[in-house]
Design a protein around this nucleic acid. Sequence first.
DNA 1: GTCTATACAGGGATAGAC
DNA 2: GTCTATCCCTGTATAGAC
Lengths: 187, 187
Amino acid sequence: MAKRKDIPRAEILDAAQALLCGRGYQGFSFRDLAAEIGISSASLHHHFPTKGDLCAAVVLRYRDALNLRLAALAAENEDWSRRWRLTAAELARSDGDGHLPGILAADFASLPAQAQQEARLLHGNLTGWLARFVTEAKKRSELPQEADAEALAHALLALLQGGLLLTRLGGPAVMDGALRQAGEWLA
Amino acid sequence: MAKRKDIPRAEILDAAQALLCGRGYQGFSFRDLAAEIGISSASLHHHFPTKGDLCAAVVLRYRDALNLRLAALAAENEDWSRRWRLTAAELARSDGDGHLPGILAADFASLPAQAQQEARLLHGNLTGWLARFVTEAKKRSELPQEADAEALAHALLALLQGGLLLTRLGGPAVMDGALRQAGEWLA
DNA sequence: GTCTATACAGGGATAGAC
DNA sequence: GTCTATCCCTGTATAGAC
């Protein structure tokens, strides 16, 4: 195999994230990932000693990036309607990996401990952002005062993740319909 | 190993379904399943030649049983409110495997062709029932005439499956909140 | 930091005896 | 219809040379 020097860590994480989201934790191997990048599996182990380390790193990076994007989104948009639509669009980008939380939930029992913990934190961050948006929307009278921020956050995230996953079984109509209906409910 | 004669097919499918739902398609092996039942893996292959056959049989049985239960539920309850609550309860039974569609969606890329097809059919059946319930509810003026049956069905199923899966990351509060919010939206 | 080579466990599946 | 034994492949991970 031709040598490639100084494979950037980000390139490994990119490919690992794509495989993880596409096939699940047990659906790809170090050899698959190595072949994808053009490197030996032994070299991968140099960067990430175990598969658990690799997976935890993927989720940690995803979580950090998502928190940054949602913070920016919140700073640039004050109204609930835009915040919701942009958050949903962020997770539903057709080229993206917004269903990572759902994948981690489905494969949870197979994940090593570090990755399980990262997955819980990711979910907590996401529901935290959504609940915060809802609370501020209530203050701005954009949502009814009776709205339960926690319940609404859980419902919206469940709808997004479920819609993204079920699209694999039912095609694009699934996510389209789910998002359209969510728009109706929130109007 | 002590011999066990005439292992009922249903017992194998029960154990296989539990493992599939708990760990995902790649999360259990014929040896795991065999040990669970108290049989040899070779005997399992006598009943189900390949893992794909086994998985497809699990989904087919689940689909048939679910269709029977939803048909009975529909026959015994004419109003939308009860139909929705009972359908949600059917999938959300804490001891049940109502998140099987979500698991199949997450592991879709790893499933053999027969199992993929069964998974699609299961999803089609579920959305079909929900859309039918919505359509009849509109006729009975229990839901607004503007309601889009397809979109509502996709949204509700996504919420249920997403909620069931994300419960693994966020605990019971996830499904509780999602169901409470769905009740608000549908009220 | 990358490679080749390899160890070792586990998974799917089969052969053939009982 | 079940078993034991086995084949062959793949997966994770390591050793040690360059």
